[in-house]
Write a protein that binds this DNA or RNA. Structure first.
Lengths: 211, 211
DNA sequence: GTCATATTATACCGAAGGGTAGTTAAATAT
DNA sequence: ATATTTAACTACCCTTCGGTATAATATGAC
């Protein structure tokens, strides 16, 4: 875990902000993949030297794990926030998928999802990455269950809404979007899928019309 | 392209069958990923020496591309055959997804899909791999269009069946299954998704009941 | 100022990995 | 038989890459 607390003890102070560095590191891994993102490129793109990177983060694997954590705190969270900010489930789902579409196929950053397209392929080799994938599905499932159950209690969804089925399809369709973006799908294609996906998740939960 | 024709000209004959070697190569790449599958491991697992591999296939990238082509000719084709052998679209879709489930989460081979989980992550770096991904979606789309239109002409589907929408969802759900398998989903989970996915594709095509 | 501590910069190491030279072996062609 | 062609094996080369030793520099504590 990276120390984000700004210490003010003795010693020469850092010339960089760890989170700013991690944002650049995210982009390098995201663009090149884990193996092709060599430490020299990481150092050059962050503006740091290799020893500075290693002093701050430990190893390439640790640096990658730190980047993954920050990616979840920023990118993944942004999608989930888009879901919760809407006033209805259908609108929320559409907002989620639209935000996801921008995240995986928008301008200003590499395509696809860092977790699905970069971290998952090295999960078998890097134990610390595997550990992230242990906890992640459960956490995601809990959050979504809480969301749907809240919507039921708000009477935005019927009592008999099939939450597990909706969540399963929700995640499947999100995964498909990230992979298609990595395979080269354009933003507008994914944006239209956002509409379709939201409707399908509602259907799978038991809402037969398009409400 | 690998020469499969069994020449009978001068020179010492091969002690191996290129397709048998490729099946092993597929498994090594499938299990370890492109980068972690080093040439020494590939040589050891195939029972060949490195110079033999290089003489037969050219380079690591060429070997990978040859393995991808064979993977499509065998594994991908098996799924598509399962679709076409059924007597109704719903059953065909279910058979496809069940075969896919076995392919990505069954025993006897690594998990996930070689194309989605191994080839796609290196597409940005390996131009010959990128070329495969150029043609693949179009070919797949053509095959599926032909299938659905034949089912319409056989009156197993109504005239107003929305073929493009069904195909899009069909592919999305297949992609999701491959990724979940790579992420560790068990076979039985994917098998139950096969049923659900078949039903959803029919729905998306315009079939409102479960026929 | 001086010491202790932490960061930065240069230059480098050792291992691993893709690929190959050079030689030996096994077939066909004549 | 001999030459020719192609494959196989040993041993090796060279680059790349993750990681680091060493020295210099910048701060806080006293």
């Amino acid at each position: 875990m990276v120390e984000n607390i700004k210490r003010r003890g003795p010693g020469r102070p850092r010339k960089f902000d760890a989170d700013v560095v991690l944002d650049t590191v995210i982009n390098v891994f995201w663009e090149l993949g884990y193996d092709a993102a060599d430490t020299e490129t990481l150092a050059r793109r962050t503006g740091l030297t290799k020893p500075s990177l290693y002093n701050a983060f430990g190893s390439k694997e640790d640096l990658f794990v730190a980047a993954l954590h920050r990616y979840r705190q920023t990118c993944s969270k942004a999608c989930f926030d888009a879901l919760k900010q809407a006033s209805t489930p259908l609108e929320g789902l559409r907002n989620y998928y639209l935000t996801l579409a921008e995240m995986v196929a928008g301008d200003g950053h590499p395509t696809g999802c860092l977790l699905m397209s970069v971290a998952l392929p090295v999960r078998n080799r890097l134990h610390k990455v595997a550990a992230i994938f242990e906890k992640m599905p459960h956490e995601s499932h809990m959050q979504l269950t809480a969301y749907f159950e809240e919507q039921i209690s708000l009477e935005n969804l019927p009592d008999d809404f099939i939450v597990p089925a909706a969540i399963a399809l929700f995640q499947d369709l999100a995964a498909a979007m990230t992979m298609q973006a990595r395979a080269g799908a354009h933003l507008d294609v994914l944006q239209s899928k956002a509409q379709r996906n939201a409707r399908l998740v509602m259907f799978e939960g038991g809402i037969l019309d398009g409400s």
